[in-house]
Simulated assay, not measured.
Amino acid sequence: MIYPRKLQVWLIDDSPADRALAEEAFVQCRADCNLTTFASGLDTLTALHLPGVVLPDVILLDLQMPGMDGFEVLKVLKEQELVQYIPVIMLTTSQSEQDVQQAYQQRASAYLTKAVTFEAFLAQVKSFVEFWVKAQLATRL
């Protein structure tokens, strides 16, 4: 029997509070995955090229960040052969139709608006992990 490795999730978000909430949500929903967080797109892009890096199975990307915003990070990710096919999910507070369209035009895999309450965010994280764990299992069969 093949046992899948733990799902590798990278979260890119400039907000320390949002990163901490995500870490807590992943713990509380007993997510069978490894969550790695980054404070900026530049930190993420640097980590991609470190020796021995474990590449993510899926990336959660905030849109509104100083320096490189989410669209700029997405553009660079989709141009790099190493990670261009890794699904990138925009995770943001923006509900702008223009932002949604731009994300999909730049090849985001999905666009998810951050839940307002922690309980709702916890439910989002649980659904997200369940979906991607099943997707990972399906690709390994």
Score class of each variant (00 low, 15 high):
V58W: 04
T117W: 02
Q95H: 02
V53N: 15
E79M: 02
H49I: 07
S94Y: 06
L42E: 15
F121A: 10
A123P: 00
L91K: 08
V58G: 10
A103S: 15
L55I: 13
L112V: 05
G52R: 11
V116D: 11
Q95K: 03
K114I: 00
I89N: 07
S94I: 01
V73Y: 07
V83S: 08
L63H: 09
K78L: 06
F121T: 04
L91C: 11
Y111L: 05
R107N: 11
V116E: 12
T93W: 02
V53F: 06
F121G: 06
Q124T: 05
D43C: 09
Q80H: 04
Q105K: 11
V116A: 10
F118T: 03
Q95L: 01
Q84K: 14
D99S: 13
Y104I: 12
T46V: 11
V88L: 04
A123G: 02
V73L: 08
L61V: 10
F118Y: 11
D62M: 09
V53H: 13
V116S: 10
M65H: 06
P66K: 11
L45E: 14
V116L: 07
S94W: 01
K114L: 00
L61E: 14
T117N: 06
L55M: 15
K114H: 00
Q102A: 13
L63E: 07
A123T: 02
T117C: 03
E72G: 14
F118I: 01
A123C: 00
T92M: 07
V73H: 08
A120F: 00
V125A: 02
Q95N: 08
T46P: 03
G67A: 13
D57A: 12
R107P: 00
H49Q: 15
T93I: 07
K78A: 08
P51N: 15
P56I: 12
Y111A: 08
L61W: 13
P87Y: 03
E119W: 00
V54T: 15
K75L: 07
V54R: 14
Q101S: 11
M65L: 08
L112Q: 12
S109D: 08
D43K: 05
G70C: 07
D57K: 05
V58Q: 10
D99Y: 06
R107Y: 11
Q101E: 13
H49A: 15
Q98V: 15
Y111T: 07
L61N: 14
T92W: 02
M65Y: 05
Q102S: 10
G67K: 09
E79Q: 11
Q101R: 14
M68T: 01
D43A: 15
G70P: 05
L77C: 08
E119R: 04
A120L: 01
E72T: 08
M90H: 11
T113P: 01
F121E: 05
D43E: 15
V125I: 11
V100N: 11
L55W: 08
S109E: 13
Q80S: 04
L48Q: 12
T93C: 10
G70F: 02
K75G: 04
